[in-house]
């Protein structure tokens, strides 16, 4: 099984030092995945690997042989934006747009974690079904920094798509 990125098969780099992030940006020219620190502190490089969110700057590309990577360029359905992308525009969940791909990929991965019943630091009752309220969301998204200060819009956009009323069917779908 080869490495795939947004469904397309991609050759692994010869140089084992190449990060998944550099492979995406420099070799594949998929520069929607951003670089903000190159040390796992900002979340701008978040991508989905088999549906789970990772920071691609701390991932060596050669480790991902056989895995399916989805980047921000693979989130929309052709011309139709993913509901979360549309919600980010509607709620003004960004200004400069640089942390945005990471926020969106991270939120999609987070919703899947929630669907699997994974608790967070602020989850009160570990036995109960986790409900995505604003605090759960803020805790789970705190690894994605935003310096323009679009936090309120980001939270509103994610709640709009994955909030309590919607989280079950979205994640199940």
């Amino acid at each position: 099984m080869p490495l795939t990125v947004n469904g397309a098969t991609v050759p692994l780099p010869d140089d084992p030092r190449v990060s998944l992030l550099d492979l995406l940006r420099d070799t594949l020219h998929l520069s929607g995945t951003k670089i903000g620190c190159n040390q796992g502190a900002c979340g701008a490089c978040t991508v989905l690997v088999d549906g789970e969110r990772i920071v691609s700057c701390l991932a060596l590309a050669v480790q991902y042989d056989g895995r399916a990577v989805t980047t921000i360029e693979g989130i929309a359905d052709g011309e139709t934006l993913h509901p979360l992308q549309a919600a980010f525009i509607e709620h003004d969940g960004f200004q400069c747009g640089y942390c945005t791909p990471g926020q969106i990929c991270s939120a999609i991965g987070m919703a899947a974690e929630l669907g699997r019943g994974m608790p967070s630091h602020v989850t009160g009752d570990l036995a109960a079904t986790v409900v995505l309220d604003a605090d759960e969301l803020r805790e789970r998204m705190s690894g994605n920094l935003c310096r323009c200060g679009a936090h309120n819009g980001i939270v509103a956009a994610i709640l709009d798509v994955y909030g309590p009323a919607k989280v079950d069917q979205e994640v199940a779908a």
């Binding site: 998929l30 929607g32 791909p101």
Partner: peptide, 27 residues
């Protein structure tokens, strides 16, 4: 009014300074 550049930003296709591929590029 929503941002005129909203769609390119949420799709990740807005080009920032380090995102212009050129022939024979060096790093």
């Amino acid at each position: 009014v929503s941002r005129v550049d909203g769609a390119v930003k949420v799709r990740g296709v807005a080009p920032y300074a380090a995102e212009f591929p050129l022939d024979r590029m060096t790093y």
